[in-house]
Design a protein around this nucleic acid. Structure first.
Length: 280
DNA sequence: ACCATTTGACCTTC
DNA sequence: GAAGGTCAAATGGT
């Protein structure tokens, strides 16, 4: 076994794990009462996400000819999706209210993905989410909201998050991230048609025809009411986003096409005014 | 007309 | 069987 590369890999992973640990400690430090660094927390969340991603990448294809594998598979899924030959009418005693359009559900067994939780006053991170559910939770005053990545179907991105208001600190949310994004968030692409072979079924239907979105960020004049600290935070947050952008594709010119749109998502009927979604 | 959210039903997990 | 997570029809917004 020529383990040269294996050794390196192990070392790298150890370092990652350590960095992960440190970040968690930092996160816990933040959650001490008295500090209100929302944006920093979100940043921490993202860092953690990166670590999780990398670490689990290692875990997933672990060379390991040896032992100690963790029976990771659990692929069994008795999801009853397979044989469609099943009856689908008459005999079923189940109550089906609406028009039966086909089998609903057909869930697959979930692969445990990385999860991590942060607490923050603003619900935004750099990704765009779509709400798909809300549930009352036992012994909790506030319901839990469920979000998935906007690009779940166009790009098969598995990331989701759950948001719930903290009972004793209603301005704060507990945000649990599940899985990491695999979508290209900025992938609207210049669309060089010339090199596309012509039957792309891919169809990323988001052409954003709304002309008013293209007005760039001249909305500096914040709409929040006087609260200077709030706006400061907002600005810091924006800067962080831009910073990140630049680092993603090194000095990409023409980054200014982001528009900021207020969404009407509401948690518990009480919509949070600091809910923003960034779109291109 | 399209797209996001709401909301109760449906499904899984414990 | 209860609690939590997900689906999708209905609804609402632009």
């Amino acid at each position: 076994m020529e383990i040269a590369s294996d050794k390196i890999a192990i070392k790298v992973k150890d370092q990652l794990v350590q960095g992960h640990e440190f970040t968690i400690q930092l996160q816990q430090l933040f959650s001490q009462p008295g500090s209100d660094l929302g944006p920093a927390k979100d940043l921490v969340a993202k860092i953690l996400g990166t670590f999780n991603d990398t670490i689990s990448a290692f875990d997933s294809f672990e060379p390991i000819s040896s032992s100690s594998l963790v029976t990771a598979v659990e692929g069994s899924q008795n999801a009853s999706c397979d044989n469609d030959v099943k009856l689908e009418d008459s005999g079923d005693s189940r109550k089906r209210l609406g028009p039966v359009k086909g089998k609903r559900g057909c869930y697959k067994r979930k692969k445990r993905s990385e999860t991590w939780t942060v607490e923050s006053t603003n619900l935004e991170d750099a990704y765009s989410w779509r709400k798909y559910g809300q549930k009352e939770i036992l012994n909790a005053k506030f319901p839990r909201s469920y979000f998935r990545c906007t690009h779940k179907y166009t790009q098969a991105c598995k990331a989701t998050k759950q948001v719930q208001k903290l009972e004793f600190e209603p301005r704060m949310f507990s945000i649990t991230y599940i899985g990491n994004h695999t979508c290209n968030t900025k992938e609207v692409t210049p669309k060089i048609k010339s090199c596309i072979h012509h039957d792309e079924i891919i169809m990323d239907s988001e052409e954003l025809k709304s002309p008013r979105l293209t007005t760039s960020i001249k909305e500096e004049e914040e709409k929040n009411h006087g609260s200077s600290t709030e706006s400061d935070l907002q600005l810091v947050w924006q800067e962080m986003l831009l910073f990140e952008e630049e680092h993603h594709h090194h000095h990409h010119h023409h980054e200014g096409t982001y528009g900021c749109v207020e969404t009407s998502a509401s948690i518990n009927g009480l919509d949070s005014t600091d809910l923003w979604s960034w779109q291109r």
